[in-house]
């Protein structure tokens, strides 16, 4: 019977729609507007920096990033010759940030492991609050602490490092002046980024699936063995992500670095020497006495920093999402 039956036409899929209530539509409009405002503000800042810095970027071209001379000379005829190059500052920023990461990542990961797996409940509560407080601490205070308290000590450490590892280029230095070096600025920065790396790592570690933890224990693992076999592979993505968020903060940090770093427009990889660079601190330093063309250059520098920070944060996000997908 079914053979002879006329073939039934297959219908087009129906379009399914709903009409939300007015109240829902209004709420939707509000949340949409607010969430997009962040994007708008960010774009406006970028546009502002680009407009203000456009002259410099046009004048200097790619040299703005690759040169390291920064000078404005006005001759007798009133003609201005300007050289703006960010290379030393950019490299300095990266160098200091990596010193900070080098110190902060191990410390933060160990702190996070302690807080998640070893600390008694009360100790944990107190420590978590303290670490979070570190993040809320004004950076000028870190700067003052760095200058008055840390620097004298770090100077001594730097001398020790130079004594034992001075044969390595980066630990060597042309003159024995150890104060206000990238090394010291890096230490100050590391203290500032420890909270963010710690709290991201701690959250990821705490999410380690219990069944895997139990599996490791049931195989006769010690706590450390369990952490190595289960927690660290699971949390690696979070640690990398947290570190990159820390890196983002380190790139942009201004005041604290400014107070403990001697900013010199010369590319320097010898981290113990009193000569370093940092884009944000440089802007602060030059701001007061800048003429119109230099202000434009500082705006352009701001734009470069902005893009750099944005890029690192974007990278951090994609690293986290990728490792989260593959590692679990």
């Amino acid at each position: 019977m079914s053979i002879d039956a006329p073939a039934k036409a297959i219908p087009q899929p129906r379009k399914i729609t709903t009409k939300p209530r007015v109240s829902d539509q209004i709420f939707r409009a509000i949340v949409t507007a607010f969430s997009f405002s962040a994007l708008v503000i960010l774009s406006l800042i970028a546009i502002f920096l680009l407009m203000k810095g456009f002259n410099t970027l046009k004048q200097q071209g790619i040299g703005f990033i690759t040169n390291f001379e920064w000078s404005v000379v006005v001759d007798d005829g009133g003609v201005e010759t300007a050289h703006f190059g960010l290379q030393a500052m950019l490299i300095g920023t990266v160098v200091i940030s990596f010193i900070a990461l080098f110190i902060a990542v191990p410390l933060s990961v160990l702190t996070a492991l302690f807080l998640t797996f070893y600390a008694p409940e009360r100790v944990k509560r107190i420590l978590v609050t303290v670490v979070d407080l570190m993040a809320a601490f004004p950076s000028i205070l870190y700067g003052l602490w760095g200058f008055f308290v840390l620097m004298p000590m770090a100077e001594y450490w730097a001398k020790l490092i130079h004594k034992w590892l001075g044969w390595i280029y980066i630990f060597d230095l042309p003159d024995p002046i150890y104060t206000r070096s990238p090394f010291i600025a890096g230490i100050v920065l590391s203290v500032m980024i420890i909270p963010i790396i710690t709290s991201v790592s701690r959250e990821v570690f705490a999410q380690t699936p219990l069944d895997r933890v139990q599996a490791a224990y049931a195989l006769g693992a010690t706590k450390w063995g369990m952490i190595r076999a289960v927690v660290l592979p699971f949390g690696a993505g979070g640690v990398v992500g947290g570190s990159m968020l820390g890196l983002g903060r380190a790139f942009g940090e201004t005041v604290a670095v400014f107070s403990v770093l001697n900013i010199v427009f010369r590319t320097n990889f010898q981290i113990l020497f009193t000569q370093g660079g940092n884009v944000a601190s440089m802007i602060i330093q030059k701001w007061g006495e800048a003429g119109p063309s230099e202000v434009s250059a500082l705006m352009a520098a701001g734009l470069v920093l902005f893009i750099l920070t944005l890029f690192v944060n974007f990278l951090a996000n994609s690293v986290v999402t990728r490792t989260v997908k593959s590692g679990r």
Binding site: P209, D211, R212, Q214, A215, A216, Y217, A218, L219, G220, A229, V230, P233, F234, G327, R328
Partner: peptide
């Protein structure tokens, strides 16, 4: 002790990494 007394759990839990 746990080396001598092994355990298999309700939900399969191999180490995915």
């Amino acid at each position: 002790i746990r080396l001598q007394i092994g355990m298999v759990f309700q939900k399969p839990n191999p180490f995915p990494s």
